[in-house]
């Protein structure tokens, strides 16, 4: 059995397109000015659960270590509380960098299978695209059916309480002008970013 692994990363392991792609997204442009002070990791209420704290992610992103970043659970633990964005002494919008990484991971399918945060984001996205509004009960049901349907049983207590208190809305809510919404969301399909969009 081959147990010898290389721990030192070579520059050849990096993806030179990674950092520029992230920095092109609004809010991520100041990534290079990071001084690695660790304020983001210190303030993050979820960093204790992360395999790599936000400070390391910032550094790995700007030097192109895409595989390492995409294999970490860090971005999927970020709850977008914006504490890091507010505290960063270099005004880096760390939360926006996390969002940019989530977007890239979802587009390129670089995430652990059935990872609940990804399933939640995808199901939310589909539901709102279809109906224009989100129904919490439907969303949570879909989440558990796709990840761990045992959880549905665990949720029974909460479900009954919600029904009893009139907070359980079964009927999905639709907006009236769904075609208008679809036209807005499909804009990029009609005018792909490479082509000049009409003014």
């Amino acid at each position: 059995m081959d147990t010898t692994t290389r721990h030192i990363k070579y520059q050849a392991d990096c993806d030179p397109t990674f950092a520029p792609a992230i920095k092109a997204i609004p809010g991520c442009e100041k990534l290079d000015s990071c001084i690695q002070c660790g304020t983001c990791s210190g303030i993050c209420p979820l960093s204790i659960y992360m395999d790599m704290p936000p400070r390391r992610i910032m550094n790995l992103v700007r030097y192109g270590f895409k595989r390492e970043v995409m294999n970490s659970n860090t971005v999927w633990l970020c709850s977008a509380c914006y504490a890091c964005t507010v505290e960063c002494p270099r005004q880096i919008k760390v939360t926006d960098v996390m969002y940019a990484l989530k977007q890239m991971a979802i587009k390129e399918r670089l995430y652990p299978k059935r990872f609940p945060m990804v399933v939640l984001a995808n199901q939310f996205y589909k539901m709102v695209r279809h109906r224009g509004r989100m129904n919490e009960i439907h969303l949570v049901t879909r989440l558990y059916l796709l990840t761990n349907w045992f959880k549905l049983l665990e949720m029974a207590r909460l479900g009954i309480e919600l029904i009893r208190r009139g907070r359980f809305s079964v009927k999905p809510d639709n907006i009236e002008r769904r075609a208008e919404l679809h036209a807005i969301l499909d804009y990029e399909k009609r005018y792909p970013p490479t082509e000049a969009a009409p003014k």
Partner: peptide, 25 residues
């Protein structure tokens, strides 16, 4: 009238342009 979901944190995790466009409606 006829407001739609703002997109919350989930939409921004999937697509930036669509998330902004959704809220901008």
């Amino acid at each position: 009238e006829d407001w739609n979901c703002c997109g919350a944190t989930a939409y921004m995790s999937v697509d930036e342009h669509k998330a902004l466009a959704l809220a901008a409606r």
